[in-house]
Amino acid sequence: MRIARFSFEGAVTFGVIDAEAESVAVLAGHPFGEPQPTGQVLSLSDVRLLPPMLPSKIVAVGRNYAAHAAELGHEVPEAPLTFFKPSTSVIGPTENIAYPPFSSEVHYEAELAVVIGRMCREVPHARVGEVILGYTCANDVTARDIQQREGQWARAKGFDTACPLGPWIETELDPADLAITCTVNGELRQAGRTSQMVRSIADLVVHISDAMTLLPGDVILTGTPAGVGPLAIGDEVSVTVEGIGTLTNRVVKRG
């Protein structure tokens, strides 16, 4: 099932995407638990897709692909390297990434994102699947020069528009070995597979939930394959995850 969050005639709601019919079946309320259809069906061309969730927090994982750690001159950490991106960094498909004026080296990072479906803490490995609603595409946009200069990542990875998510949540997906690609202006820049992760999604959920309560709609970014690089104003960047779809955003000068 593909669950989207969208706006239609001034209202924001959730719906189930039918890609073949290019339509969306409107849901009552939120998609957690058993989604309840209203019976209303809209054309995809008549709605505006929004970020599939507005999470209370985004917990991201750094250096979870060995080749990416190596390309930045780092070793794979002994334990998962986690950091936060604020909810204010989230944008949806087709929204603009605003190049921050304090940086001159903004990079793309294509990632698979996990969407949490229920409140949980200290999740045992065998029950991780019970707390996941589904998966979506993410771009962990990073001001690389700021990351290197400041030594901590709050501004470098948390600026406004630094977390594109979308285009929807796929609930029926085996994330073990999915292709992840990133293109810039149609040119392939990243190509990896989730099977290359140092630590699995289950391992990450266990590790993160040992420390903090995860709420419905929270997002975990699982790391990026090798091939990260710079974006320029005017670029169109697309992240594609096999079995989900493509998330596309344009880079603009912050107004």
Score class of each variant (00 low, 15 high):
residue 183 T to N: 03
residue 139 N to P: 06
residue 191 A to E: 13
residue 159 F to H: 06
residue 154 A to K: 14
residue 205 V to N: 03
residue 131 V to W: 13
residue 168 W to M: 02
residue 212 M to G: 07
residue 146 I to L: 15
residue 158 G to T: 00
residue 200 S to I: 01
residue 142 T to L: 10
residue 154 A to F: 12
residue 192 G to S: 09
residue 134 G to W: 04
residue 170 E to V: 02
residue 215 L to I: 02
residue 214 L to M: 14
residue 186 G to Q: 11
residue 216 P to C: 09
residue 209 S to R: 06
residue 184 V to G: 02
residue 189 R to C: 03
residue 190 Q to L: 04
residue 155 R to I: 01
residue 170 E to M: 06
residue 205 V to Q: 03
residue 123 V to Q: 02
residue 156 A to V: 00
residue 152 Q to G: 10
residue 163 C to N: 13
residue 215 L to C: 13
residue 176 A to G: 12
residue 187 E to L: 06
residue 173 L to S: 06
residue 138 A to G: 12
residue 182 C to L: 15
residue 148 Q to F: 11
residue 214 L to N: 09
residue 128 V to I: 05
residue 181 T to V: 08
residue 122 E to S: 15
residue 128 V to M: 02
residue 150 E to C: 09
residue 214 L to I: 03
residue 143 A to M: 06
residue 179 A to S: 14
residue 179 A to W: 10
residue 156 A to S: 14
residue 180 I to G: 02
residue 211 A to S: 13
residue 133 L to S: 08
residue 164 P to F: 03
residue 157 K to T: 01
residue 191 A to N: 14
residue 192 G to N: 09
residue 216 P to I: 02
residue 188 L to H: 06
residue 174 D to L: 03
residue 132 I to P: 02
residue 218 D to F: 04
residue 186 G to K: 13
residue 196 Q to T: 05
residue 172 E to A: 14
residue 155 R to Y: 08
residue 188 L to T: 05
residue 162 A to T: 01
residue 169 I to H: 12
residue 197 M to G: 00
residue 149 R to C: 05
residue 179 A to G: 13
residue 150 E to I: 03
residue 162 A to P: 08
residue 125 H to Q: 10
residue 213 T to K: 15
residue 161 T to A: 12
residue 135 Y to A: 02
residue 204 L to T: 00
residue 158 G to V: 00
residue 162 A to K: 08
residue 156 A to E: 05
residue 218 D to V: 02
residue 207 H to N: 12
residue 152 Q to A: 11
residue 186 G to V: 07
residue 168 W to V: 01
residue 180 I to P: 02
residue 181 T to I: 05
residue 176 A to S: 15
residue 189 R to F: 01
residue 158 G to R: 08
residue 154 A to N: 11
residue 191 A to M: 11
residue 200 S to F: 00
residue 146 I to W: 14
residue 131 V to F: 12
residue 196 Q to A: 13
residue 135 Y to E: 03
residue 148 Q to A: 15
residue 185 N to V: 05
residue 153 W to R: 12
residue 163 C to L: 08
residue 195 S to F: 04
residue 149 R to W: 07
residue 166 G to K: 14
residue 144 R to N: 07
residue 146 I to E: 13
residue 195 S to L: 07
residue 175 P to E: 10
residue 198 V to L: 09
residue 136 T to Y: 04
residue 169 I to K: 13
residue 125 H to T: 03
residue 183 T to M: 05
residue 179 A to I: 10
residue 157 K to E: 00
residue 167 P to H: 12
residue 176 A to F: 06
residue 197 M to K: 04
residue 178 L to M: 08
residue 140 D to I: 00
residue 213 T to S: 15
residue 174 D to T: 01
residue 152 Q to W: 07
residue 191 A to Q: 15
residue 172 E to S: 15
residue 182 C to K: 06
residue 162 A to S: 15
residue 166 G to I: 02
residue 209 S to Y: 09
residue 132 I to V: 11
residue 207 H to W: 15
residue 210 D to Q: 12
residue 155 R to N: 09
residue 147 Q to W: 03
residue 147 Q to D: 01
residue 180 I to H: 04
residue 133 L to N: 11
residue 149 R to A: 14
residue 185 N to F: 09
residue 200 S to H: 00
residue 197 M to T: 01
residue 167 P to A: 10
residue 133 L to C: 07
residue 153 W to G: 06
residue 177 D to E: 14
residue 154 A to R: 15
residue 154 A to T: 11
residue 137 C to I: 05
